[in-house]
Design a binder for these strands. Structure first.
Length: 576
RNA sequence: GCGCCCGUAGCUCAGUGGACAGAGCGGCGGACUUCUAAUCCGCGGGUCGCAGGUUCGAAUCCUGCCGGGCGCACCA
């Protein structure tokens, strides 16, 4: 059993490290996970409320595990009849029934009996039991099931029982930190960073929905060579000179040069504003310079040695491919490398009561996977507590030709411009709808046009249509007594399909979370919208025979659609 | 050379052991006196990179090859 009432996850020194910065504002942040404002700094606040948060969440979570999920319940009941765990799937072809199981095929080998024979026995017993309308054997040994209208009506009732249908499935809730974006403040965020944010934030939202307590953190190097180059570049422009060879250029550098003072705080401010606009809300910001101050205390904790005047981590003995320099030799300046800060950072994360530290990194950093695991081992922590999530890179295409992004040349598509062109909803949808292991192409020319064809509007429209129906139904239509679903006649095909679609949600969202694959959510949301639009087209809701049932169906659909959209950071509009 | 990821319809992509492989976009043709037509219905389109293997069953798992992306720093 994991302790949930440990001390605060964040010591004061790390809550908000930009104090002293001109723009280290202490704004009250809206925290989507904890459902209330959380001050971005201050230990007292957190200590007083953390435990309560977890318990409040637990109380909001009527659905633990598979207990109340109708499909799981059916599978469990079938499992008892079959004498083996049963998984239900939805056959692609409707003639194969509502649900199917391959349990007979799987057991045939061990039992040394023909699968169809086993399937026939199971089907017969299920039929007798009255759990389903019909159970048939098909093909090599599938058991195809058709559920009754009553079962579907009850199932819809179960969906409507809780607004968090499908959530709260974490086996043992954890304190998780998701560190993402973490771009150095040497320029505005680009669409490449946006993929990081869209992906990482959706994973964070999934974990939160599962029941974990999630904190989003942004880490940046405020002291390294890149920052020097950035400041030098701005200074050069101010003097009317060319930026250094390896420096930064582009219109934004000129803009920063036009105003006096350190450009870094202004850059950070812009980054933060862009992220807020992109609906990625950070709780904490970590600085490399602060972590470096703790090196004297932390480095002795790990396995190091000196060679050629530098201090090395013996990471090759802990699972990495090689050893790495932590402190440069005096000839090279004697400063710590970023890997030294990595050590301090991970020690800090895992030492402050976090169960799991998640890094969201572009595929060009895949080499650091073994490094982080090695650091965890060197520090004496279980490497399973460190998770590195990789996403493939974003390529830009312009006029059919690949465009190489380089921030230094200013040859990029900034996230702000991308959002101006396509809107936040379309951008977030687009960036998370592809599998994270898939390289992604963004056609700069078609970005704006594409937005009108983005399936996100199809899904949002389903939500808005339902909102319209519920508005017209009036405030009393959904009072509990009227939601008692009670179809006056046999359910129509479109109604059955829609209920079954909604019932897929718990398993789908759990798998998406498990696999860290939020792209399954938009794919599913399209299916839900599909089924709803078809239903809508065929049947009237208001003033129909089945109005109570259909209103319940609409409400349940609206909630699932809204949940899907929220999980990927997209708005669910009431009108379109 | 070594490591990670990817090759599925014209294009962008779903589909990590099940039944004839799917969607969007693009093309063609239909449907609104109605709770929103940003919708619905129909048609066309694929040697799932190639070759073996495992399995009752493979786009999916294993091996090898071909093609593409990304890494392999006293840069971050």
């Amino acid at each position: 059993m994991r302790a949930l009432d440990r001390g605060p996850a964040y010591p004061a020194g790390h809550r908000r490290s930009r104090r002293g910065d001109p723009q280290a504002r202490r704004h009250l942040r809206r925290d989507p996970d904890l459902g209330r404002g959380v001050r971005a700094g201050g230990r007292r606040h957190r200590r007083g409320h953390d435990r309560g948060d977890v318990q409040a969440r637990a109380a909001l979570r009527p659905e633990r595990g598979s207990g109340l999920n109708p499909v799981s319940r059916l599978a469990e009941a079938l499992g008892e009849i079959a004498g083996a765990p049963v998984e239900l799937e939805r056959p692609a072809d409707p003639v194969h029934g509502d649900y199917a199981t391959t349990v007979a095929l799987q057991r045939a080998g061990a039992e040394r009996r023909p699968p169809r024979e086993i399937a026939a026995e199971i089907a017969a017993r299920v039929q007798e039991n009255g759990l389903v309308d019909s159970a048939d054997v098909a093909g090599p040994g599938f058991v195809n099931l058709r559920v009754s209208d009553e079962w579907l009506v009850d199932a819809l009732g179960a969906i409507l029982e809780t607004e968090t249908f499908g959530g709260g499935f974490a086996a043992s809730p954890e304190r998780v930190q998701v560190e993402m974006v973490s771009a150095n403040p040497t320029g505005p965020l680009t669409v490449a960073h946006a993929r990081n944010g869209a992906y990482g934030d959706s994973v964070a939202r999934l974990l939160s929905f599962a029941g974990d307590v999630v904190v989003r953190e942004y880490y940046y190097n405020d002291a390294g060579r890149q920052m020097e180059l950035f400041r030098e570049s701005v200074e050069a422009v101010r003097r009317g000179e060319e930026p250094p060879e390896e420096g930064y250029r582009g219109a934004y550098v000129a803009d920063l040069a036009a105003e006096p003072g350190d450009p870094v705080p202004r850059m950070l401010e812009r980054i933060e504003a862009t992220l807020e606009r992109f609906r990625v809300h950070f709780h904490t910001w970590a600085l490399q310079s602060e972590l470096e101050q703790r090196l004297p205390e932390l480095l002795p904790r790990i396995d190091t040695y000196e060679k050629d005047g530098a201090v090395w981590a013996r990471s090759s003995q802990y699972g990495d491919e090689q050893d790495w320099v932590l402190i440069r030799s005096p000839e090279q300046g004697g400063r710590p490398t970023y890997r030294a800060a990595d050590v301090a950072y991970l020690a800090d994360k895992l030492g402050r009561g976090l169960d799991r530290a998640i890094y969201v990194l572009g595929a060009d950093h895949h080499g650091t996977r073994k490094w982080y695991a090695a650091v965890a081992r060197m520090l004496g922590y279980d490497p399973a507590r460190v998770e590195v999530l990789l996403y493939q890179l974003v390529h830009l295409v312009e006029r059919g030709a690949a465009k190489r992004m380089s921030k230094r040349r200013g040859d990029v598509v900034f996230l702000d411009d991308f959002l101006d062109a396509v809107g936040v909803d379309a951008a977030r949808w687009y960036l998370v709808a592809r599998g994270h292991d898939q390289t992604m192409e963004i056609d700069v020319d078609l970005a704006a046009e594409k937005s009108q064809k983005n399936p996100v509007y199809y899904v949002q429209y389903a939500h808005a249509r339902i909102a319209g129906i519920l508005r017209n139904a009036g405030p009393n239509a959904l009072a509990p007594h009227r939601r008692k679903v009670d179809p006056g006649e046999a359910l129509a095909n479109e109604e059955r399909e829609l209920v079954k679609r909604l019932l897929e949600f718990p398993a789908l969202v759990a798998e998406a979370t498990e696999r860290r694959g939020p792209h399954a959510i938009p794919t599913y949301a399209i299916r839900v919208a599909d089924d709803f639009h078809r239903f809508y087209h065929e049947h009237r809701v208001l003033e129909s025979e089945n109005e109570p049932f259909r209103l319940g169906l609409c409400l349940a659909t609206q909630r699932v659609v809204a949940r899907c959209l929220d999980l990927i950071g997209v708005d669910a509009p009431e009108r379109m």
